[in-house]
Amino acid sequence: MGTMLVFLLSGTLLAATPLLLAAMGELIVERSGILNLSIEGMMALGAVVGFATIMATGSHWLALGAGGLAGVALSVLFAGVVLLALGNQVATGIAVGILGLGLSGLIGKPYEGMTVAPMKRMPIPVLSEIPIIGPGLFNHSLLVYLAPLLAVGLWWMLRSTRVGLVIRAVGESPESAHAIGYSVLMTRFLAIMTGGFMAGLAGAFIATVSATLWSDGMIAGRGWIVVALVVFATWRVDRLVIGAYLFGLATIAELLVQGAGIRVPSQLLTSIPYIATIVAISILSMDGRKMRLNAPASLGRTYNSTA
């Protein structure tokens, strides 16, 4: 029972961290009024570039950074098409996502099935000594602790800083933001690049820290769960954190149920996060008025920044 609980806690944290990282990025992007549906592809590309980097250098930190930069590279393409070529955001997101998945398969071909050493854990003194909770929550790699701290930072940034204000203003009404002298183009470009970095970082985290292997298709829809998480959170950082850990729990439910010896088809268990997403979105979207109140008003709308 004890080991089961430790696994429950640490597994949830490990599964939730990349979801939270990528979802924070997507939240910034959507708050600026852009719907980026290419997260899945950005995570996949970040994962494979991170994996290739660790194979070449042996450094987890370089791998995470390189994965983030790969996400940025893909996000620049997305930003260019959406902001400069005024492409439809849904279609562009799908297109760039497919490109990212394709490229990740191509780059990852020589690494298929390979594994890497796990990242060094940083047990937190004293706290990690507590039975069950200690090894479950306080014996992880640095990024696992950093993700919720980053979320606090993001919450504060959006709420109380000038940068946050500009992002929100641009997302609510690009016309007004432009009229009072903010650059809609610049704000959105930077927001999208930040989102790309976070998605790439999350992908690299999955490949080099939590799964420690590369296999084509290993992101397995997590990028879409990230997009769903932002809707689930109604664009609020506090709910995003809760959502990420709930979904982290849902993704390891498969292993838990099997570990408990309950006989359920494994395919049903694998589907749990997807089913949970559908249920969560349906329940949360029910109050259409509230959704409209929270959603950035210009989300998904094409804005011509040369006019």
């Binding site: 592809g41 393409l77 260019g80 098409v81 400069l84 070529a85 005024l86 492409g87 439809n88 279609a91 562009t92 799908i94 297109a95 760039v96 996502g97 497919i98 490109l99 990212g100 998945l101 394709g102 490229l103 990740s104 398969g105 191509l106 990852g108 071909k109 084509d216």
Partner: peptide, 20 residues
């Protein structure tokens, strides 16, 4: 096979961009 997937992505990205 990933070459195929990549090319599908390129096809749609460049189409959307060219629609400008």
């Amino acid at each position: 096979y990933a070459v195929n997937t990549s090319l599908q992505g390129v096809l749609l990205v460049s189409y959307i961009a060219a629609r400008l």
